[in-house]
Design a protein around this nucleic acid. Structure first.
Length: 178
DNA sequence: AGCAAGATCGGT
DNA sequence: CCGATCTTGCTG
């Protein structure tokens, strides 16, 4: 019996699916960051879905701009932007080309809050467009032991969005069970 | 060219 | 509740 103990790095076909399908699957997986000196895994515990130009809470709701351009590409890339002049937000682009959508990483084990985890992981503008399937500084690994339940909640901080979009249960929290 | 607002956070 | 702090996108 051969047991595969090698960590399984997520490939493009994982990310090019619709964000609604990727979101529940990515919870519990490891976001791995190689700092050069050492490599550290961060288990993903909370994500938020941003889906298409029709989603008034999503940055692409006003079309393609220089900032949002990466969301229009094939899934598997990183979308980062600075908010309030001080916090970097880390997003994972999903879906196929011209299907603009992304997952905001809102929490990893030990660090809750999108601004806090990017500070910990040292994520900045240099990660814009980084390919998670080809980068040597950041990637995502499957968690074979992954067992848990998913809590669905409204998104945070999008008061400007339409009521219908504000109320979508597009914030997913991972409740570990093993 | 100028301006208002922002997918946040930490301190009162 | 408020300020920090600066990029972005919109307006003119």
């Amino acid at each position: 019996m051969i047991i595969n103990l090698m960590p399984e790095k997520l490939q493009p076909d994982f990310f090019t699916r619709d964000v609604l399908d990727v979101a529940p699957d990515i919870l519990g997986c490891y976001l791995v960051r190689n700092f050069g000196k050492e490599t550290r895994p961060y288990q993903i515990s909370e994500v938020e879905i941003y889906r298409g130009e029709e989603d008034s809470g999503c940055h692409v709701s006003r079309g393609k701009t220089k900032r949002t351009e990466v969301m229009y590409r094939d899934g598997g890339l990183v979308y980062v932007y600075l908010i309030y002049g001080m916090h970097w937000m880390l997003n994972i682009v999903t879906g196929m080309k011209d299907q603009p959508q992304a997952l905001l990483i809102r929490g990893v084990q030990g660090f809750n809050g999108p601004g806090k985890l990017t500070k910990e992981m040292q994520i900045d503008s240099s990660f814009y467009g980084e390919n998670l399937c080809g980068s040597n500084r950041i990637w995502i690994e499957k968690n074979p032991q992954r067992k848990g339940t998913i809590e669905k909640l409204p998104r945070i901080g999008i008061d400007y969005a339409r009521k219908e979009d504000r109320e979508r249960l597009w914030r997913l929290k991972w409740v570990d069970r093993g």
